[in-house]
Design a binder for these strands. Structure first.
Length: 479
RNA sequence: CGGGGUGUAGCGCAGGUGGUAGCGCACUUGACUGGGGGUCAAGGGGUCGCAAGUUCAAGUCUUGUCACUCCGACCA
C-alpha cells in the first residue's frame, strides 16, 4: 500500500520546492511537455483555469473601456529595430523566421516577443486628431521568447498572455492609465486569485526595455521567492516619435501621443500553484477552479445513491456552481486523493447513511474541515464554504507574506537575512544602480522588487553604501 | 552560456564481470468490494534516445550526437 502511494504521491514542498512544483503541474494534469523545448501542452484542466482567469480579466478590461484586437504573429526586422532601447532589450531572445516555403526571405521576420511595434505601426495610421484619442486596445495572444532555461508556466518559450497598448492625448492621462491597470491587476489578484501582493515602481535597472516607468505587482510564493506577477508601463512619447505617430491637438498643433502597455501571462498559473498549493497538490481559489464542487458517491452500487448525487448536481448547477459528479469505478479513497491533487475547493460526499439522515458531508480543500450539512440547506452552505475557502486562502497567503517580509537597517543585517531567511527584505536605498548590482552579486541573486507606493522611512541611509537614502525598496529573489 | 543529473512499456524504475529484456503503477476483461489511493483472476503493450564502432553476440563496452531536467547568469 505504501508503495502505491509513493508512485502517485508528490515530493514534499519542504524537501524540494522545485520538484514539488513540477510534480504538481504534471500530476494535476495541467501541462505536458512537447517535443520543442520550452513549449508546453496546456491540458484541458490547466487551460480551463486559464480560461476562467481570462474571462474575469477580460470583463475588467472592458469595464475600464478597452477593446480587443488581434495583431500579426510576425514582425519584420526593420520594424522591430525602430526603437533602440526596445530592440536591445529583446534582441537576445527573439526567434526568427528566415525561410518562407522554399525561399529564403529578403528580410527576416521576428516571431513576436511582444507587440509594441505592431501596435505603433497601426496607431500611426489611425490616429490623426485628438478626437481619435484615447485608443485603448488589448490583445490576447501568445508570444515567443527564446529562453535558455524553461519551466512550465513560470518561464516557457511560448506563453499565452494579454497585452494592452494604449495611446493618450496627454502624459497625465497616460500615467493615469498605467496606474489604473496596475490597480486592475491588484484587484484581480486579490478578488479572483486570492493572492495578496506588493505593488510599486521598478527601479531604472529593472524597468521594461523602452519604458519611462514600469510598475509591477509582486506576489510572494509559499517559499518566499517573488514572482513578477504583472507589469504596467508608461512610455511617454518615445515610441510615438520613433514611429511617427502624430495628431493634431485641440490647439491645432501637431503632437505626439503618450503611450502605455500592460500585461499578465499564463505565469499567473505558476503563481497560483506556488502560493496556494500544498503537499497534497494543487489548491485552487473557487473563482477560477474549473470544478468548484466534486460529488463523490459512496457505495454507489446501492440503490438511490447515484440518483441522489445527480439530483444534488442538478440543483447546484442551477445555482450557478461548477459541479462534477465522479461516477467512475474508482474507490472513494482514490477519488478523495485525486480531487485533492487537482485542487477542487469543495468535496461533497453522499452515501446511503447520509441519505437516510437527509444530509451530506462537505470537505474544504484548504483546511480539510469536514461538516455534515442538511440537504435542505445545501445550496447556501456550498456558497458560504466556497467563499470561506477563498477568504481562507487569502488570509493564509497574507500571513505568509507578512511572516516572510523582513527589515534590514545595516548591510550586515541585510546579508544575514538574505542568506538565512527566505522572503522579501525591506531596506533603504540611495538610488544608485551600483548598490543594486553589489547587492545582487553578494547575496547570490537578491534584486530590487519594487519601490512600493507605501514607503516607510526605516532610516536615512542606504543599506548598502551608507549614502543618503532616496527610497525604501522591497528586495528579494525571483523566479 | 557555465555546472550537475537522466534517457529501457503510458508513468516511475531494475537490469555486477556482454548471451536476445523485467518489476510496480497505469491500461483491457470479469467477479467481489466501496465513508481516505481496495481484492482476486486472466490479458495486451518495448527497433532499450539516435548514429557509428568493437564482438560470433551490445540495454550492457568505445566514440560521437541529440533531447529532457535541475542549479546558476538573462528575462514576463
Amino acid at each position: 500500500m505504501a508503495k502505491e502511494k509513493k508512485v502517485e504521491s508528490i515530493t514534499s514542498m519542504d524537501v524540494d520546492f522545485a520538484k514539488w512544483y513540477t510534480d504538481v503541474v504534471k500530476k494535476a494534469e495541467l501541462v505536458d511537455y512537447s517535443s520543442v523545448k520550452g513549449c508546453m501542452v496546456i491540458r484541458p484542466y490547466g487551460y480551463a483555469i486559464w480560461e476562467n482567469m481570462q474571462s474575469d480579466m477580460d470583463r475588467r478590461f472592458k469595464e475600464t473601456g478597452h477593446e480587443n484586437v488581434y495583431m500579426p504573429l510576425l514582425i519584420p526586422e526593420s520594424l522591430l529595430n525602430k526603437e533602440k532601447d526596445h530592440v536591445e532589450g529583446f534582441a537576445p531572445e527573439v526567434a526568427w523566421v528566415t525561410i518562407g516555403g522554399q525561399e529564403k526571405l529578403n528580410e527576416r521576420l521576428a516571431i513576436r516577443p511582444t507587440s509594441e511595434v505592431l501596435f505603433c505601426e497601426h496607431y500611426a495610421k489611425v490616429i490623426n486628431s485628438y478626437r481619435d484619442l484615447p485608443k485603448l486596445y488589448n490583445q490576447w495572444c501568445s508570444v515567443m521568447r527564446w529562453e535558455k532555461t524553461t519551466r512550465p508556466f513560470l518561464r516557457s518559450s511560448e506563453f499565452l498572455w494579454q497585452e494592452g497598448h494604449t495611446m493618450h492625448e496627454t502624459a497625465e492621462e497616460a500615467r493615469e492609465e498605467t496606474m489604473k491597470m496596475l490597480k486592475v491587476y491588484e484587484a484581480f489578484y486579490k478578488e479572483t486569485l486570492a493572492i495578496p501582493a506588493i505593488i510599486g515602481k521598478k527601479t531604472e535597472k529593472e524597468k521594461f526595455a523602452g519604458a519611462i516607468e514600469t510598475y509591477t505587482i509582486e506576489p510572494m510564493m509559499h517559499n518566499g521567492v517573488a514572482l513578477q506577477g504583472g507589469t504596467s508601463h508608461y512610455f511617454g512619447n518615445g515610441f510615438a516619435k520613433a514611429f511617427g505617430i502624430q495628431f493634431t491637438g485641440r490647439d491645432n498643433t501637431l503632437q505626439s501621443p503618450h503611450q502605455t502597455s500592460w500585461g499578465v501571462s499564463t505565469r499567473m498559473l505558476g503563481a497560483l500553484i506556488m502560493v496556494h498549493g500544498d503537499d497534497n497538490g494543487l489548491v485552487l481559489p473557487p473563482k477560477v477552479a474549473p470544478i468548484q464542487v466534486v460529488i463523490v458517491p459512496i457505495a454507489a452500487h446501492k440503490g438511490g445513491v447515484i440518483e441522489k448525487a445527480e439530483e444534488i448536481e442538478t440543483s447546484l448547477k442551477n445555482a450557478g456552481i461548477r459541479v462534477k459528479t465522479d461516477k467512475s469505478d474508482n474507490s472513494p479513497g482514490w477519488k478523495f486523493a485525486e480531487y485533492e491533487m487537482k485542487g477542487v475547493p469543495l468535496r461533497l460526499e453522499i452515501g446511503p447513511k447520509d441519505i437516510e439522515k437527509g444530509q451530506c458531508v462537505l470537505v474544504r480543500r484548504d483546511s480539510g474541515e469536514k461538516v455534515f450539512t442538511p440537504l435542505s440547506e445545501l445550496e447556501e452552505a456550498v456558497k458560504e464554504n466556497l467563499q470561506a475557502v477563498h477568504d481562507g486562502l487569502y488570509q493564509k497567503a497574507l500571513e505568509n507574506l507578512k511572516e516572510k517580509t523582513h527589515t534590514a537597517l545595516t548591510y550586515d543585517e541585510f546579508l544575514e537575512t538574505a542568506k538565512n531567511k527566505p522572503g522579501f527584505i525591506k531596506a533603504m536605498w540611495c538610488g544608485d544602480e551600483e548598490c543594486e548590482n553589489k547587492i545582487k552579486d553578494e547575496t547570490g541573486g537578491v534584486k530590487s522588487r519594487c519601490i512600493p507606493f507605501e514607503e516607510e522611512k526605516l532610516s536615512d541611509k542606504c543599506v548598502c553604501c551608507g549614502k543618503r537614502a532616496k527610497h525604501m525598496v522591497y528586495w528579494g529573489k525571483q523566479y
